[in-house]
Design a protein around this nucleic acid. Structure first.
Length: 297
DNA sequence: GGCCAGGTGCGTA
DNA sequence: TACGCACCTGGC
């Protein structure tokens, strides 16, 4: 794998930035468009594409153009300590692609090659566990614009200002537990208000220890711990584990993945065949299906 | 007006 | 164990 490195760093318009030699094929657009995170939006960027948002309690922008990727709002130390890991730059996606496109039978591999091609450049982000858990509780029976709206409202009401004062961090479990179900419901969370409150209380009280979930030996162990929370079923647990706990073997099955199974496979792909990269395979198939769907409509 | 949106819990067979 | 159905809300 080509080594990721900083090729330039400095300050522009009062904000630090680092310019990267990013891994070949890394796509800011696809990574932040594929539905894995809800706090980033496209922003104006000359000669390229950029998203801005908040993660790990910091405001940050990721910009891509013909020359590479720039992280705005980050100095060299933040990049090394936070964003390099957030973007999972230590993962070798060329190798992962080889694995997920050769795990099935001939027909299945052909589907996977197509999915990997359409999705080329997506990286599974390493988001904060609590934020991911809470976000995917909100995602159930919901659409992306409204999920983003609700999360933004939670941050505005119960989050703390980011260090640079430019944005609001995702509220802690304690903050949401203290807020209580009624105030969470008031932000149009609907029937999910009770779920969010339950999750917040259990996490804040230490009844559910997210560090222990992260350190769990087996997937089943981590899953069953999360599923103690009201409103967390297999799908929400899988999304949380994949996007918030670094469990790349998690394989969330939602309505899109059911469409994938019906459209492209005799009997849906067996996630076990993809081993510890089932989640990446899932994300590729998911992205392909949504891509196909957007072309048809 | 009814249906759907990146599910889940609950009641019923 | 395996269904069907309701659930808040907003957009079409």
């Amino acid at each position: 794998m080509k080594k990721t490195g900083i090729v330039d760093a400095g300050t522009k318009n009062g904000r630090p930035y680092v310019k990267l030699a990013a891994p070949e094929g890394f796509s800011v657009f696809k990574t932040f468009d594929c539905g894995q995170c809800f706090r980033f939006d496209p922003t104006e960027y000359r000669d390229g594409y950029a998203v801005s948002g908040v993660a790990h309690g910091r405001c940050v922008s990721f910009a891509e153009d013909g020359n590479g990727v720039t992280v705005i709002g980050s100095d060299e130390s933040d990049f090394a300590n936070i964003w390099e890991n957030y973007l999972a730059f230590d993962e070798d996606y060329d190798e992962i692609d080889r694995i997920v496109t050769s795990a099935l039978d001939e027909a299945g591999n052909a589907v996977m090659r197509r999915a990997a091609e359409v999705s080329h450049g997506i990286r599974i982000l390493r988001q904060e566990p609590w934020e991911a858990l809470c976000s995917f509780i909100i995602s159930q029976n919901n659409n992306i614009p409204r999920i983003k709206k609700i999360i933004s409202a939670l941050c505005e009401n119960f989050g703390e200002k980011t260090g640079d004062g430019l944005g609001m961090a995702f509220p802690t479990a304690r903050a949401l537990a203290d807020a209580g179900e009624d105030r969470i419901f008031a932000l149009k969370t609907g029937f999910r208000a009770g779920y969010i409150a339950d999750a917040a209380r259990r996490v804040a009280d230490g009844e559910i220890d997210l560090d222990r979930v992260a350190a769990a030996e087996t997937y089943e162990e981590a899953e069953s711990e999360l599923m103690k929370i009201r409103g967390v079923g297999p799908k929400v647990a899988a999304c949380s584990l994949l996007f918030g706990f670094g469990r790349t073997e998690a394989y969330p099955v939602d309505t899109w993945m059911k469409k994938v199974a019906a459209r492209h496979f005799e009997s849906g792909p067996d996630p076990k065949k993809f081993g510890r990269y089932a989640g990446v395979a899932q994300q590729y198939l998911f992205y392909m299906e949504r891509y196909i769907n957007s072309k048809e409509n």
